[in-house]
Design a protein around this nucleic acid. Sequence first.
DNA 1: CGTCGTTATGCGCATACACTCATAAAAGCT
DNA 2: AGCTTTTATGAGTGTATGCGCATAACGACG
Lengths: 107, 107
Amino acid sequence: MPSPQLLEEFSQFFRLLSEPARLQLLCQLKHSGSMDVAGLIEATGFSQSHISRQLGQLQRAGLVSCERDGVRTIWSADNDLVDDLCALVQNRLRQRLEAQLQSLAAG
Amino acid sequence: MPSPQLLEEFSQFFRLLSEPARLQLLCQLKHSGSMDVAGLIEATGFSQSHISRQLGQLQRAGLVSCERDGVRTIWSADNDLVDDLCALVQNRLRQRLEAQLQSLAAG
DNA sequence: CGTCGTTATGCGCATACACTCATAAAAGCT
DNA sequence: AGCTTTTATGAGTGTATGCGCATAACGACG
């Protein structure tokens, strides 16, 4: 049984992934390798200020990192954790739907 | 690159885990095997109505299930997904702290 | 130094939701 | 049927935060 502090940290982490905007940024960066903010605006349709804030949160959590290229900032996803988590969840969603399908066919 | 719909589902799922109360309920059930609501009130300190609602959400997501024992309802955690997710996150947190420690020692 | 282009931040709005209290619904007992 | 115990739900409150607008800070270049 995890300690309350650990539970708090877990939930804080999951909260980062609980927003489609942030998850989209993460997946986009993972998919494209690295992008500048202009590209992320283009890809997601969010405002510059919003993207900047969300990237800041993800950076503090160590999920993305940036390097400056002159005046621009190039962002990239830092690790495979999010992909792994999403894969597990996707698997679970698939299992659920398959079970529903099965019970529908059987019933 | 996951579709927007899939990203939405992922984030909805992670949102379930983004609240310490729900995560605590899940871990408690996993730890104790199965419990009634009175036990969960005792263990978590939340109000009965709140616990009932959170269990409802977790049940709709297929993370917990219940069986009635007379007037009481016995709840139990349904699968290992949450444990696996938490283990991955914990691993990542540990790595982060180790890296910070290292850089502190080196700097 | 002033201007331009890019990113960060103060502010405000709207919404979502965690949480509780009060109450209804359900199930067992006499 | 009435009473008790347990769970579910309607209603309200307070807080957190997603999101954009405007603007400030920062870096490059003339």
